[in-house]
Design a binder for these strands. Structure first.
Lengths: 110, 110
DNA sequence: TTTATTTATCGTAATATTACAATATTATAA
DNA sequence: TTATAATATTGTAATATTACGATAAATAAA
């Protein structure tokens, strides 16, 4: 078949994997890094910075917007994008809870 | 086309997205959570815990092994899997550096 | 050796993702 | 109104991922 049966997993597991999936493409990592690096928000020059075609960048931005990690503000004929601070912080908490699980295996069987 | 041209991106961006891609499926999140929860390492009962077919679990374990986040130890007829502690810690550092980027946008344009 | 048990691999169908050309949409400027 | 500019959407081809049945491989037990 195709993709996961999300009913099989907890909401948290699905949330974690949803965030991770968005980070699972280097173009989106690059877009986010650029949005962090540029103090003011950015719009279409992402196409020049990343080096992918405009529809492709737009598609990646859409996925970042869908999961609410960025927001876009129409400014004339262009759109200003930036990190959604609150949601980024919330996402970080979710991911960190997962990453910071304790390793209790003393017996080190492997 | 299909997937990303990894030459377009930095090694770090590719590394981050590689880790994230592995976390981008709830079954692998569930497998890792189970490996953390069970103090001793685990092998084939992941099939029962997760609820996917044996070849599917084996496939997911392979991806986790490929990126070195788990290791497997043959014990008789079964295989004992556990978290690769050192690599998990290293991965955490890489991901956290990405997640903890400062948000410098004072002007809050969006 | 034969049988049972566990895991890995192969083959394959269903689905998802990625990238981009072409085009539509939206808003500004002339 | 008629360009012009920036972004979004549509359609589609190429590729990747996921899931699982069937089967192979490896080991232990009888």
């Amino acid at each position: 078949m195709g993709l996961a049966k999300s009913e099989m997993f907890t909401d948290k597991q699905n949330l974690i994997s949803s965030y991770a999936k968005v980070f699972g493409h280097p173009a989106r990592v690059a877009i986010l890094e650029h949005l962090f690096a540029i103090n003011s928000c950015i719009c279409g020059d992402l196409v020049d910075v990343i080096g992918l075609a405009q529809p492709t960048i737009s598609q990646h931005l859409k996925e970042l917007k869908n999961i609410s990690l960025i927001k876009g503000n129409v400014e004339g004929t262009s759109v200003c994008y930036c990190i959604h601070k609150e949601n980024w912080t919330a996402m970080k908490a979710t991911i960190n809870e997962f990453l910071n699980q304790d390793i209790n295996c003393n017996t080190d069987c492997c």
